[in-house]
């Protein structure tokens, strides 16, 4: 220590993860706000649940009639519906989290100026970040529960391991929400959101959601194996089909790292974004 000092110690800027005074411990107020707003637009809220269900019904039944059975993660043949359902669950966790953390956050930030209104109160930047990510998880969690129930109804769950698909969906959503929010902090206009679509749509289509990795030539398999949604799909597919192995922990680790990177970048950038 360099001696007594009258002012409060302040760590150097680069050490701080959060803006000073950025957290008032009231992130749950944002959940309250989002819940109130959703009650008023319940139809939109509800519709988010149906999209993956429509896909499951159409593709599982229709496309499935062209395919028959496919080898599952451990080689045991499974129905086409059982093959794509975990993929759709993973994709819906990604899509919901990305939508909430990019379009919704950007709109509130730049157009509705909602965060400015909140920052005029004791709430800080960290309350806002945690509250918004928290809401994305609440919403994603509810959709995941609904979708898992639908899967159970169609007999597409392979055993008790499937219960872990819910926390897995939350982890996937958390990772995508953190990265999404970090990405949003760099966006300047709606034009930039083309890039979000350009990332999420190919991922949805090509991350072994609709057919196994073996369809691709060798080099492309390596590319696909790097995609985050691929790891989400593999994780879900292992859990819902009951083909559980230690490899699943590798996928979990992927999302833990992704969450950490996203969270660090997002919180660093929030100060720049909100407190000019």
């Amino acid at each position: 220590m360099t001696g007594p000092t009258t002012s409060l110690p302040r760590p150097p800027r680069s050490w701080r993860l959060m803006p000073s005074g950025g957290y008032a411990g009231r992130a749950h107020m944002l959940l309250e706000r989002s819940a109130t707003a959703s009650r008023r637009s319940w139809l939109v809220f509800l519709s988010g649940f149906f999209e993956p269900v429509f896909y499951l019904l159409a593709m599982g039944q229709g496309l499935g009639s062209l395919v028959g059975v496919l080898p599952g993660p451990d080689g045991t043949p499974i129905s086409y519906a059982a093959f794509i359902a975990p993929g759709l669950l993973a994709a819906s966790a990604m899509n919901g989290a990305v939508f909430d953390s990019t379009f919704n956050v950007f709109f509130k930030l730049k157009y509705a100026k909602l965060y400015d209104a909140m920052l005029a109160t004791p709430l800080g930047a960290a309350d806002i970040a945690l509250g918004e990510i928290g809401w994305a998880l609440v919403r994603g969690g509810l959709y995941a529960v609904g979708f898992l129930l639908v899967m159970a109804g169609f007999g597409l769950l392979g055993g008790p391991w499937a219960l872990l698909a819910l926390p897995a969906a939350l982890l996937v959503a958390l990772a995508f929400a953190a990265v999404g929010m970090a990405a949003t902090s760099f966006m300047r206009s709606w034009q930039d959101f083309d890039l979000v679509t350009l990332v999420t749509v190919p991922m949805f289509l090509f991350s072994t959601t609709f057919y196994p990795l073996s369809v691709y030539p060798g080099w492309l398999q390596v590319v696909v194996e790097c995609l985050p949604l691929y790891h989400a799909v593999e994780l879900m597919r292992g859990l819902t089909t009951g083909a559980v192995s230690l490899a699943l922990l590798g996928h979990v680790a992927y999302f833990v790292v992704m969450t950490a990177i996203g969270a660090v970048v997002a919180t660093r950038r929030l100060e720049v974004l909100l407190l000019r």
């Binding site: 000073s20 005074g21 706000r33 707003a37 100026k113 209104a117 005029a120 800080g124």
Partner: peptide
């Protein structure tokens, strides 16, 4: 800079452009 939340708890702010929450009613 240090006591932002404590100050903001005791003041009221009317920004230049209305930033009302359009997803909520007047009362909400």
């Amino acid at each position: 800079d240090r006591d932002g939340p404590a100050v903001r708890a005791r003041i009221g702010v009317v920004p230049q452009l209305d930033n009302l929450d359009l997803e909520l009613t007047v009362r909400q």
